[in-house]
Nucleic acid binder design. Sequence first.
DNA 1: GAATTTCTGGACTTGCTGGTCCATTTTCCA
DNA 2: TGGAAAATGGACCAGCAAGTCCAGAAATTC
Lengths: 201, 201
Amino acid sequence: MPNARTEKGRATRARIVEGAAEVLREQGVVLTTLDDIRGRTGTSKSQLFHYFPDGKDQLLLAVAQFEADRVLEDQQPHLGRLDSWESWRQWRDAVVERYELQGDHCPLGSLFLQVGRAGPGARAIVAGLMRQWQEQLARGMRALQANGLVPSGLDVDRTAAALLAGIQGGVTIMMSTGDSSHLKAALDTGIEHLRTTGRTG
Amino acid sequence: MPNARTEKGRATRARIVEGAAEVLREQGVVLTTLDDIRGRTGTSKSQLFHYFPDGKDQLLLAVAQFEADRVLEDQQPHLGRLDSWESWRQWRDAVVERYELQGDHCPLGSLFLQVGRAGPGARAIVAGLMRQWQEQLARGMRALQANGLVPSGLDVDRTAAALLAGIQGGVTIMMSTGDSSHLKAALDTGIEHLRTTGRTG
DNA sequence: GAATTTCTGGACTTGCTGGTCCATTTTCCA
DNA sequence: TGGAAAATGGACCAGCAAGTCCAGAAATTC
């Protein structure tokens, strides 16, 4: 942790990241200025640049990583135990609740639009999140296969990719329309697909 | 068309919107300035404000509408004739091609992030687009039902919502990772779901 | 064809925001 | 305890981009 060599320093740095995440969630990247973050976190300009010498982009990147970590954490422990239909249902409810609660703003979506284009940093964060998320879904599907609940012929990776896409899109649509029905439809249809696939004559 | 009362005026206004759309697609909203648009469209500051008196937001909104219209147009005529498996396949290919060609930037996604929060205008544009898109998908599914290719018990609206969410998410992921496999997975899995659903014992 | 409206050019203003700088305080450590 | 390193406060700077303004050209209209 460069430029945070003391206990107090690490605390301040963390306060900045968390406070910035709050402000960004409320106002969006475009409308948020360093002064907003300063105000929220009770810090001074020099502190911001002391902990993030490369300026705003570096801070945004740190916030993006912070938010990305939260995404998967918030789905635990359900996401880690997708081995029965009941556990899938619980996970589904957790996802819906999390995003309905979050309201109409996606911290990551807007963050990587700001930083994403220029730097490979933001892309790497998003790509990493997507990879991990999809892996966990795939693992859950394999657990269903192991329990004989889903035919072993299922293309797990493709199905997991499709489900992940559905969630992403559901969240996106929810953020622009305020309606979570697409997210629910994607989750429910995806799970239903698992239940019915491969049973064709 | 306020402030474009003459033929020449309408042409200029259209040139501004189309040129702005180009620049925005290339650079993204955040990096695009009015001077960029001015340069691309060969116009002066006063022209921009003559045709869009409320400034940049109003112009962005016009571009958003312009792009939203294109989204559905680019899927025609396939989207209008989803009455056979072959036509669904053609539509699927058209969607994939369109977004792969468009590369790594979603004109609407970023546009409504900029304007979206504040004004209901951008939300209305996106919501309207989603509604129309989903309606056309639902109509296609009903056509399949009418042709006996899909069981009549299928919840068409929910399935269409899920498919739309999958497309959105697939595009979103593609834009941040450069990989179109999620989009393809969502489309293929969605169509496969249509083919296999309801055939369970 | 003259009056009036619309359209265009571009200089100028204004406000904000990211970023710099340095003085001061606090913490660390020998 | 005293000096070095880290942390903090806040004034200041520079640049940029949105928006204003007015003069003049083109067009419409009667």
